[in-house]
Design a protein around this nucleic acid. Structure first.
Lengths: 202, 202
DNA sequence: ATTAACTTGCACATAACTGTGCAAGTTTTT
DNA sequence: AAAAACTTGCACAGTTATGTGCAAGTTAAT
């Protein structure tokens, strides 16, 4: 036994990245498509991942830990701002959100995905409860339901609206604030008061 | 040549109905699954539809004409009420919405689906323009974008939120009103003023 | 009751995948 | 330079679909 080669580790990363790209476009992309996207042969991929399932599991774990990290790093005191920021930060992970969404739709992986995303979901529920208690978020829907609604809205607006548009990010944030109960003018005022939310980072 | 048999026509309908059910659960349901769901053999299905594509096309046409009919039948003068009613009526077509959504995601059928749904989309854009002109809908987003946002929200809330819940319908309508720019209290007031929107028809 | 319309079951051809074995190469490490 | 690590291409087996042909049966119309 000797140390693993440096290029092998790089190839493994290439595969994961190619898989993210390929699966975000077509959730049923073949192993061959992914391998070729990584500049490798299909056969070589099997040297890095036991099978399709193993690869997919790693993608879930990857994405989930990104999302969960983001969720736990949010520290705004105003839950509305926190939800807006969460949306904005996830918007920058669009490809990963795409993949997670596609995989989550797959009957095969739905439960493991749900499990992996538990911390993110928990954080959203907590923010919603806080906002409802403070009277800044809508109160006509149970917290858990509203959290789900917010999650679905974020996913929809990140994965299905034109990401190339210059104010796609701002649109995503405003959509989440709207579904959270704010009127469009309130959402607009909140964005004006927190321009950092939607700032294009240099 | 003789008149076609009565049971044959019924079987054809069974297939369409089974396909709607099966594909709303799993967009990749096999021909065999659909045929069995209709109480027929796989082989018999091919007596009614040339191939999978033909069947899918008919489902699209079916769903689209249902949706378009609904959209054109809405005659509320207040665009907010009209959008709410449209959502409520589509909510009662959940299975068809599911199927249309699944099919629309398929690269294969995306353009023909878009074409078939054009009247519905046109109606939504018109309602949005009207509401924006009247100042009752949000003005921070171009009409076409808002229409798309409304469409995506309706789809999401109809196909992905718990349809079994007693106020699933009301939730769907409020979600659409929220994304249209109303605050949750405004949406609530509007629903209170128009209880027929969310009435469970007897 | 007869006939045409349907349905069934089975066999078959085809296609697109997944995953494995192996021999022959290439690249990195030592 | 030698050895281990990695990649490649090809062959192969297995799976799951789709769509067709045909003979035998069943069912509805006349």
């Amino acid at each position: 036994m000797r140390a693993p080669r440096r290029d092998a580790r790089a190839n493994r990363e290439s595969i994961l990245s190619a898989a993210t790209t390929a699966l975000s476009v077509d959730p049923h992309a073949s192993i061959d498509t992914i391998a070729r996207g990584a500049g490798l042969s299909r056969r070589a991929l099997y040297g890095h991942f036991e099978d399709r399932d193993t690869l997919v599991r790693e993608l879930i774990a990857n994405g989930a830990s990104r999302f969960n990290d983001i969720a736990l790093r949010i520290d705004d005191t105003d839950p509305r701002v926190a939800l807006g920021r969460l949306t904005a930060m996830l918007w920058n992970e669009a490809a990963h959100v795409q993949v997670a969404a596609s995989i989550a739709l797959d009957e095969q992986h739905v439960s493991s995905t749900a499990e992996a995303l538990a911390p993110l979901r928990r954080r959203v529920v907590d923010l919603v409860r806080e906002g409802q208690a403070a009277g800044s978020l809508r109160n006509d829907v149970p917290a858990v339901t509203l959290a789900r609604l917010i999650e679905e809205t974020a996913r929809t607006v990140i994965t299905r609206m034109d990401a190339a548009s210059p104010d796609a990010l701002s649109l995503a944030v405003r959509a989440v604030l709207s579904i959270s109960g704010l009127s469009w003018r309130e959402a607009q005022a909140l964005l004006a008061a927190h321009p950092d939310l939607v700032a294009t980072q240099s």
